[in-house]
């Protein structure tokens, strides 16, 4: 969070001062839509999903000439939807303070995943903050608690510096809450330091693809066990607060909070791969859900605020 002092060589943003910092804080605390967030100086996007999908679209895989060249991990993805969390037994649950949330739904087969993405670019190499209110549930097809049916939910950034930055990497910090695996209720945060190998797509040497959400390669975040509020039947939900800070200059995670828990990120590593020739200044943010059983998993996103210290 900016402290009123200039923190780096921000080339596209005016310097800020103590008065601005105090005014921003007061204005945001007085705004019911923003008061539950703690954004950095500049709000890049604030999505409440009461105004449509707010730029969160389906993560589609790469292809060339035919859709058959798309990797299966991507081919399974479908479009996110706007939901009031309508349940067969209790009707619409609604969001934190509006009717709608973004819903990311998997297909009903073990290990199925779905991903929603917001695609931006960056104008400053500075700390950015991702905040969201989310909740997850399996489809309520059984009159059971089903607390171990959702395998995981999580988020990731897909980042690459500018075309004149010299030798750089494409950097992809991944974080997931591993709720369960093979029926075991595990409840812990994990990160992913490595992706799968790249596959050439088509024969023009212009496109390649890698399914970075493949199930292998996740590592436990040290001290990352956390029991979340799941509630007592499959159709009761509670919203959970997430906050993740990442420095676009050092390409390093700075902090992570989920509700009341602040986690030590010193052991966190993002995926690093060589820079790609068409992705300069990319700033993508993804949210994903994964099911552990033959039942759809739903990640609901009430709201997202992405901000930057510039």
């Amino acid at each position: 969070m900016n402290d009123g002092k200039e923190t780096g060589p921000l080339t596209n943003a005016p310097a800020f001062d103590d008065m601005e910092t105090a005014m921003l804080r007061a204005l945001r605390l007085a705004d019911p839509a923003l008061s539950r967030f703690d954004p950095m100086r500049r709000i890049i996007s604030h999505d409440d999903f009461a105004r449509g999908h707010c730029g969160w679209s389906q993560l589609v895989g790469n292809y060339e000439d035919t859709l058959d060249t798309m990797l299966p991990g991507y081919a399974q993805h479908t479009s996110a939807m706007l939901s009031t969390l309508g349940h067969w037994d209790a009707g619409s649950h609604g969001g934190v303070d509006s009717s709608y949330a973004l819903k990311i739904a998997t297909r009903p087969r073990p290990g199925a995943q779905n991903v929603a993405i917001k695609r931006l670019t960056m104008r400053e190499r500075c700390p950015i903050r991702f905040e969201a209110f989310v909740t997850f549930k399996p489809e309520a097809t059984e009159l059971k608690l089903s607390e171990a049916d959702v395998r995981s939910f999580g988020f990731l950034f897909d980042l690459q510096g500018g075309d004149e930055d010299g030798p750089i990497d494409r950097v992809m910090p991944h974080m997931r809450f591993l709720n369960a695996a093979d029926g075991k209720h595990l409840q812990k945060w994990q990160f992913k330091p490595e992706t799968t190998k790249f596959t050439a797509i088509g024969d023009s040497d212009k496109t390649a693809s890698h399914y970075h959400l493949a199930p292998d390669g996740w590592k436990d975040l040290p001290g990352g066990a956390q029991r979340l509020c799941y509630n007592e039947i499959a159709t009761k939900v509670n919203w959970t607060y997430l906050r993740f800070d990442f420095d676009l200059a050092e390409m390093k995670a700075l902090s992570f909070r989920c509700n009341d828990r602040e986690f030590d990120m010193s052991g966190f590593e993002p995926i690093r791969i060589p820079a790609m020739k068409n992705l300069w200044c990319m700033l993508n943010v993804c949210l994903f859900a994964e099911t552990d059983v033959a039942k759809r998993a739903f990640l609901y996103v009430d709201s997202v605020c992405i901000s930057g210290d510039f």
């Binding site: 105004r51 449509g52 999908h53 589609v60 058959d68 081919a75 479908t78 479009s79």
Partner: peptide, 11 residues
Amino acid sequence: SENFTAILARN
């Protein structure tokens, strides 16, 4: 007014 295109099935 809002409008949205969703892909329900692809290939």
